[in-house]
Structure formats: C-alpha cells, structure tokens
Simulated scan of single mutants.
Amino acid sequence: MEPDKQPLQNLQVDQPMVSSQGTLSNNIEDVTSDDNQLPNSLIPTIGMKFASVEEAYHFYNAYALQVRFSVRKNLNRKNKSNVVTMKCFTCNREGKPKERSPTKAPPKFKRPEIRIGCNAHMKINICSKGAYNVTSFDLDHNHTTSTPTKAKMLKSHRSISKAQKALGYLADAAGIKPKETYDLLAKQAGGRHNLTFIPDDYRNYLRTIRERDITLGDAGALLQYLQDRQKGDPSFYYAIQLDSDDQITNIFWADGRSLLDYGYFGDVVCFDSTYKTNEYAYLLLFLAIVFYRAIKKATIFIFKHFVDSWSVNN
C-alpha cells in the first residue's frame, strides 16, 4: 500500500451517522488512532438526513478532514422560490483540467494539475419536509490523500479562530504589517505548523474587514460633502464610478480653483503616485482624485472626467 493512502474500500458504510432525530454528531474525538479506520458514525450513508445544506457541508467536510482531502461545493440546483433542491459536494480534485488556448504562450512555470477526475462526492436532495437526504455517496479516490500533518492546511479545512481574528484586527488598526502579525500569531501558537491558516487567508480576512468598514454611512457622508461643495462652488465637478455590485471603485473631483489654474498652466499635468495610502488603501492623486490601484479602467475613468470637467467649465 502506498504511504498515506486511505484504504477506503474497506470502510463500512451500512450504519447511520446521525441520530433518529437527524442531528449532526460533532464527536470527532471518536476517531481511532489508526489512520486506516474510521467509526461508522463519521461516514456518510445513503438516506442520511440533514436540516440544511450548510449542516450537510460541515458534516462532509469533517469526514474529509479525517480522510485527509479537501471539499469543493460543486453542483447546485434551485427551484422557482430560490430554494436549493440539490447540492453536490466533491473532492477538490474532481473534474478535468482546463484546456489552454493554443493562441496563448505556454507558462514559464507549470503548476501541478489539481483536477484529475476524482469521483469522491456526497450529493443531497431536498425531501418533502424541507430537510435534505443523502442520495449519492462515493468514497473512492483516484489519488493519494494528504498526510495527517498537512490535512488541516487544505483549503476547505483552513480557518482563523475568533481570538486570532480579534488580535489581527487590533494589530491592523495599530498599523502593524500583516507579515509581522502573522509571525506574532505563529509564535503565540508555538510555531507556524500549529496555525490552521496561511498568510493569504489572513490578508483576505483584512480585505474583507476593510470592505465592511466602508459602510453606507461613509459613502453617504462623502456624497453629501461633494454635493455641499458643488452648492458653494458652481464650477465644482465630481464623478463616481461603481462596480457591478454598486460599490464605489473610483471618485474624481475638481474644484473651480483647480480648473482655473489648469487654464493658465495646463501645458503640464503632474500626478503624484507616491503619496501615502489612507486606511482604505486608496491613493490621493492630482486634483484630489481618489484612485484605487493603477489599473486600466480607473485610468480611463480619470482622464475621461478630467476632460469632461474642463469642457463643462469652458
């Protein structure tokens, strides 16, 4: 047998995993010390019931942690009322790799293929009482699963605890760099090998918090400020760009004095792209432009409204 290979074909799946009331068992400690065996109470079975899709996912993900593979939420089907009627959770190595376009240049570094057609999955369907039944389950993998020490770092099993989030939030508010905070959390846990998340997870958490902090109140206050400036200065010009989710991405404004100065000294325009970023990670540029990242769309937006603001007032 290959090292760390799970002999899943020897597992017994004829016993139910949940109680007669359909409640989910969280007794992961029941797993035996022998990595080659799992108690029947932790293995999905056909007909098992769950109260919700999330409950089914957490159960299958807990099973996956013991078998040492990562879970991906795959197929999804909803009815006219937008209620999920079918959901399939698969091994993250399910499916076929994407075919590269022949017109694209080959990559300098080829990454190992993740999707290799693994069929391991658990599918649930809604039943008459609103609960969900397991209607299909395949425990066989066509690949070697992870090692016990690495399994917790697979994508579906990585997580940041509430205490670590609280400390990370305070550190970020105090201006501590993410790398330094991650090292602090690792030292607190007794080493990086004891953490259950990677630096990218922490950075993603900070990004989520920052986006959440830019609340409607902040956007409303900014819009009110621009409107007040326009009332006191008829030449004041501003424009706001939104993304597909109606979130503010770029803002341009120019007051009458700036436009007048440009009329006299318009043969040179200077952009200061080295100005320090504020807490929202925006750059303050010429004519009080708020510019998030130097990307093509934002650049087009800025110069379009720069020209429009000059045209309106001349």
Rank of each mutant, 00 (worst) to 15 (best):
C91F: 04
K150P: 02
T85E: 06
P234G: 15
T299M: 12
V290D: 14
Q224G: 05
G256A: 10
S52E: 02
K98G: 09
R158T: 12
N74D: 15
A173V: 06
Y282Q: 13
F89W: 10
S156I: 13
H193P: 01
V53W: 06
N36W: 10
P7N: 08
K49A: 05
I43A: 01
S311T: 12
Y182I: 07
S161F: 06
R229P: 00
I209G: 01
D200N: 13
S235Y: 14
L285I: 14
L195T: 00
P106W: 09
P7S: 09
N36Y: 14
A174C: 07
K129C: 02
D228S: 14
F271E: 05
K276V: 00
I302F: 15
N26E: 00
A120Y: 01
R77F: 15
Q37I: 08
L195Q: 06
M17L: 12
R207N: 15
G130P: 13
D172P: 03
H141W: 11
K5I: 00
Q188S: 10
G175S: 02
L216C: 02
K162A: 15
P44L: 11
A219P: 05
D200Y: 12
A166V: 15
N92T: 08
R77S: 15
E94M: 00
L283A: 10
I300W: 13
P102E: 14
E29P: 01
A174W: 06
I43V: 09
G117V: 05
F137S: 00
G175P: 02
D183G: 08
N61D: 14
D228E: 15
A288N: 13
N194M: 11
N119D: 06
Q230T: 05
D261F: 13
D140K: 13
R68Q: 08
Y280T: 01
P44A: 13
Y282T: 03
F69K: 04
P107R: 00
E113P: 05
E99W: 04
S311G: 09
A64N: 13
T181S: 06
Y202S: 09
I176Y: 03
T90W: 03
D200W: 04
L226Y: 07
D243A: 06
G95N: 11
I240Q: 04
L195P: 11
A288C: 11
R100N: 06
E55Y: 10
A288K: 01
Q12G: 01
K187Y: 08
D14G: 03
L283G: 02
S128A: 13
E211T: 07
I176W: 02
Q12A: 04
L285V: 12
I28S: 06
C88N: 14
Q224R: 14
E113F: 09
P199H: 05
E94N: 06
D267F: 05
N278F: 02
F271T: 06
I114N: 11
G232C: 11
K49S: 02
I248E: 01
T277Y: 03
Y57E: 02
N250M: 13
L75G: 10
Q224N: 12
A166D: 14
G191I: 01
N194H: 05
L283D: 08
D200H: 09
A174T: 01
R100K: 10
T196R: 10
W310A: 10
